[in-house]
């Protein structure tokens, strides 16, 4: 018997959280990049490869990540698997991106 942790049809769960949330810019960026990587000219990542990514990165991670974060992390895992870049290169790029978000130094005057 094999049942993935994502295969939840029929499981017990609480009330439906009937809410509408805004679609945030970074979430749109995730979907746009995914769509471009899977398009007919690039064919670098199919939707099923992306799904394999988040269906195999561990139940704890799957459950604690939001929908778009899950897809983003899976996309990165697959691209690293395909040697498009390394984890170290991603870490370096993240450090640069984070620096752009860092709060300005406190004003002492």
């Amino acid at each position: 018997m094999t049942r993935g942790y994502h295969d939840i049809g029929g499981k017990d769960a609480g009330p439906i959280p009937i809410v509408e949330l805004p679609w945030l810019h970074w979430e749109k960026q995730v979907e746009a990049i995914r769509s471009l990587l899977g398009d007919g000219t690039r064919r670098m990542m199919s939707l099923d490869e992306l799904r394999r990514g988040f269906e195999s990165f561990g139940e704890d991670k799957y459950k604690k990540l939001s929908f778009y974060r899950r897809r983003l992390e899976a996309m990165i895992d697959i691209l690293i698997e395909k040697d498009v870049f390394t984890r170290d290169e991603l870490d370096a790029a993240m450090a640069e991106a984070r620096a752009r978000w860092a709060p300005p130094a406190a004003c002492r005057s």
Partner: peptide, 17 residues
Amino acid sequence: GQILVDALQTLLVERGL
């Protein structure tokens, strides 16, 4: 999430993808 996707996009742009 924004930092992570920006980093991803930077790498993909650098590689011309």
